[in-house]
Amino acid sequence: MTTLETRTPKTAEEWLTRATEVRHRLAEGAAARDRAGETPYDEIALLKDSGLVTLLGPVEHGGGGQEWPLAYRVIREVAAGDGSIGQLLGYHLLWFWAARLVGTAEQIEAVEAEATRNRWFFGGAVNPRDEDVVIRDAGDHIVYTGRKSFSTGSKVSDVTVLEGVLEGTDTHVFAIVPSAQPGITFHDDWDNIGQRLTESGSVTISEVQVPWEAAAGFREKVFEPRTYNTLNVPTIQLVFVSFYLGIARGALEEAAEYTRTRTRPWLHGGQERAVDEPYQLDLYGDLQSKLWAAEALADAVAEEALAIHRDAWEVTPEQRGAHEVRVAAAKARATEVALEVTSRVFEGLGARATATELGFDRFWRNVRTHTLHDPVAYKRREVGAHLLRDELPEPTWYS
């Protein structure tokens, strides 16, 4: 891959242009990389070289100083080139931001400065359905031991966000640790049908020590809670929405180019070009319209959240709950649209386009794999309960 311009973008438009450049580089050979399933070291190096990993970082330390609405659009753009790398970037930005989510003011400043200056790439071993990572209080430090069935980013990460439960309590503790250390073993067992380059296999954590002062949000071994701590779910759900829609965008645009240049008109249709077939015009018009609508909803919900992120220390449960309902709606719509787009594009491609070499199936496999993360029916339920019963969702690991 050729080297990108090293100057840090200044405006939202410049960042989107940079993301588009990254997208085009990733799109080259994406189908072959998907088949090979190799660790994406070069692709993560591209994200670092482009500066996209520091998009949310402080300007004074070389970061972009940008906010979540732009970050979601950047994730979407990158995912259009390669869904796996879009997910990795999205998760990285989430864990980069996690210091703001749960950290103390001092921790936020220290983590963001160090991560931005060094262009750390974040991974995370934070599967909430695993309850087997136990944290032992060892005086001036804590010790993580156990296993997580998923650790997205694994070998390509510089640091990993760990999560576990303090022994004898129900207190969860997050901490950032170096990924390359004897106490962390990545098992390279991610072998799923989609998102094959996300390095999302299991991990064993053995006696990983963390100073108490690095336990996110703790002072004198006591966590200082605030409503903003619960913004992890709506924020990561919008990350999901972003790369679902990005993958759908990549599928639609790649399919349209194939139809324009290679699909043959049906021999009994009376048209000389596939692009003049009435059913092709209807198909692509339908899919484009649905994708535009889902993207517009996602952008609107992201903008609505700005007030919450800008007033993180004062956000109320009511503000958080109302935002979660809107996120749930965006997640439900993005899931349905992305699955439809990535499946139905085959109707406009023709039988020859099912060749393994072309890899059009990867778009659907990628969306289908990750949209099973949590049942979309429960997102629709949150929206329905709010509409019919004026209920706001209680914060959980999934709502």
Rank of each mutant, 00 (worst) to 15 (best):
T8I: 12
W15C: 01
H24K: 12
G29Y: 04
A31M: 05
A36Y: 04
E38S: 12
Y41K: 10
Y41P: 00
A45Q: 13
A45Y: 07
L47G: 05
K48L: 04
G51A: 09
G51F: 03
L56S: 03
G57P: 01
H61M: 06
G64P: 02
Q66W: 04
Y72C: 06
I75N: 03
D82M: 05
I85F: 03
Q87M: 11
L93S: 01
L93T: 00
T104Y: 06
Q107V: 04
A115H: 04
F122P: 00
V134H: 14
D158R: 03
V161M: 13
D170S: 15
H187K: 13
D188I: 00
E199K: 09
S206Y: 05
A214M: 12
R219L: 11
F223N: 06
F243S: 02
G246Q: 03
I247H: 03
E257V: 11
Y258Q: 06
R264V: 14
L267W: 15
Q271P: 01
V275C: 09
D276T: 10
Y279F: 14
L281H: 13
L281W: 09
A294D: 07
W313A: 15
A329V: 10
L339T: 09
T342C: 15
L349D: 03
G350N: 07
E357R: 12
L358H: 07
R362Y: 09
W364S: 04
N366S: 12
H370R: 15
A377Q: 15
R389V: 05
